[in-house]
Design a protein around this nucleic acid. Sequence first.
DNA 1: TTTGGTACTTAGTTTTACTATGTAGCAGTA
DNA 2: TACTGCTACATAGTAAAACTAAGTACCAAA
Lengths: 109, 109
Amino acid sequence: MKISTEMLKGVLEGIVLQIISGGETYGYEITKELNQHGFEDLVEGTVYTILMRLEKNKLVTVEKKKSSMGPARKFYSLNADGEATLATFWQNWEFLEKQMTQLKGDYHV
Amino acid sequence: MKISTEMLKGVLEGIVLQIISGGETYGYEITKELNQHGFEDLVEGTVYTILMRLEKNKLVTVEKKKSSMGPARKFYSLNADGEATLATFWQNWEFLEKQMTQLKGDYHV
DNA sequence: TTTGGTACTTAGTTTTACTATGTAGCAGTA
DNA sequence: TACTGCTACATAGTAAAACTAAGTACCAAA
């Protein structure tokens, strides 16, 4: 099963924040992890644009580190604003979940 | 609490299908119902564009009926394709819900 | 006759993710 | 050496969906 791409809008950024909150990581790794979490069709390009948006919006700190496995990696960590944004994201998500469950029940014939 | 608008993309169409599945209804009424279901900032224009998309994609049937309360109403009902699309929508939603819950647990520090 | 609620429409904009492609480092191997 | 494959990042252009903002029109009550 794959997730319809439109349904991801506004959710994907929160997901990436959540993954980074689990510990310093970088774009290529995030992509691979998401691919194994049901986001099969997600490609690197999409993740990189999100990471750059996070950086532009000052929700993360970035540190470049050399790797023995290829080119240098850009490691991302959440800063205070990032943590706050992530917390708000989950609140919104849970609220949406609740409304969706209600709608499903209320309008069932 | 209101739902962030970007998070709605791809979800709103399913929500509207779900409401219609509960019985023949029209745009203005759908808007009011959603406003009371946590979608406070949702305005008519948004709902109407979704309804027209549903009609264009042949997921609904439309019937115009006079009203004693103002101009004529356009009543929408789901057809077979609409029901199928709605069922798929809920499958996708539940899958996304599952993945989100997993992500929240897996990457918690 | 004017106000307010009901009801539908649409042009233009913004946001977000996708497509597609390019660049580059490094390891193993033929 | 040349080639393949995996690792890793970057980005220009496009598509989809919802929003903004404005308009039209019907009808009832004050």
